[in-house]
């Protein structure tokens, strides 16, 4: 049974449609990375799954139930983001006690140890924490609740490099020991690609790609060579992204070629290699280097 099922789900705020006719299934006990550019509806999707906001149309099922106002979904799900509200009057230690009262799988020992490791004293108040520390605390709560459905929306906001690395590591270790469905959204694909199994790419109000991370990588190949050589041999491919560093030019193209073509390319001195998941992601969402340069170049020309 998939953990999350969406059938033609639409979400609009007044006149703005954020997600349009979305169809997808999130597999159970898999870490899925939710990626996409700013404002494509990643957070909206997660909040809908969490039952915080109501779908405008379509059928949404989480753990077999409609999440809006479902106690079952709420009890088996946690949604971590930097907007998470905690009462001002309670200290971090009090908050852990509250988590223990509300979440069945809560591991108090793990939470205490992690907070100690991240140098978060239990006597502090959530409100006085710095942005990075607050994110760290929320992330620790997300890991230690061990909810069957755990969602992190930009969990690393404000964290320093060390804390980010530790968070990914802690999440992976705990996931291996206690498998669960994890949805993780972040813009730092390169940092989390080792952790992810599936990728869900949201683009233009719809799912642009959903599959395993190797499938995403296999969609493209990277061709490196002199620009004129590339132009001569590789023009028949759909070029997703061009960049040049030094004498060599790199084209990321659709992975759609025969073996014969491949040998031909290699004979022409073009280096053919696989792309990383984050390169594939950047290529797919058009976050190519020099993209915004075009805006300024165009202004200068006029």
């Amino acid at each position: 049974m998939p953990a999350i099922t969406l059938k033609n789900v639409t979400k609009s705020y007044r006149s703005i449609t954020v997600l349009n006719q979305l169809n997808l299934e999130i597999r159970e006990n898999v870490i899925t990375g939710l990626v996409g550019r700013n404002g494509v509806g990643k957070t909206t999707l997660m909040k809908m799954v969490a039952g915080f906001i109501k779908e405008s149309d379509g059928e949404l099922r989480v753990l077999g139930e409609r999440p809006f106002n479902s106690l079952k979904v709420s009890a088996n799900m946690i949604f971590i983001d930097d907007m998470m509200g905690f009462p001002d009057a309670l200290t971090l230690g009090d908050l852990l006690t509250e988590c223990d009262r509300f979440y069945e799988n809560w591991d108090q020992d793990l939470a205490m140890r992690l907070l100690k490791y991240f140098k978060l004293p239990l006597s502090l108040n959530h409100r006085v924490l710095s942005k990075g520390k607050r994110s760290t605390f929320n992330a620790v709560v997300g890991i230690a609740t061990r909810c069957p459905l755990t969602m992190f929306d930009e969990p690393i906001t404000g964290m320093d490099a060390g804390a980010r690395r530790d968070f990914y590591r802690a999440l992976l270790k705990d996931y291996l020991a206690h498998p669960r469905t994890i949805l993780l959204s972040s813009h730092h694909m390169e940092e989390m690609e080792d952790l992810l199994e599936d990728i869900l790419l949201i683009d233009g109000k719809d799912s642009a790609f959903h599959g395993s991370i190797t499938e995403l990588q296999e969609k493209f190949i990277s061709l490196q060579g002199k620009e004129n050589v590339l132009k001569q041999y590789a023009n028949r491919y759909a070029v997703i992204h061009k960049s040049s560093a030094g004498p060599l030019t790199e084209w990321i193209v659709d992975n759609d070629h025969t073996n014969l073509e491949l040998t031909e390319l290699k004979q022409a001195g073009i280096r053919v290699s696989a792309v990383s998941a984050s390169e594939a992601y950047l290529a797919m969402t058009g976050q190519t280097r020099g993209g915004v340069d075009d805006v300024f170049d165009a202004m200068e020309r006029e």
Binding site: F52, N69, S70, L71, A75, M84, G85, F86, P87, F102
Partner: peptide
């Protein structure tokens, strides 16, 4: 809104 967010950080629905 703060009160609501605080409650919804833990297990709840609108009835509870």
């Amino acid at each position: 809104a703060a009160q609501r967010n605080e409650s919804f950080s833990f297990v709840t629905n609108r009835l509870t």
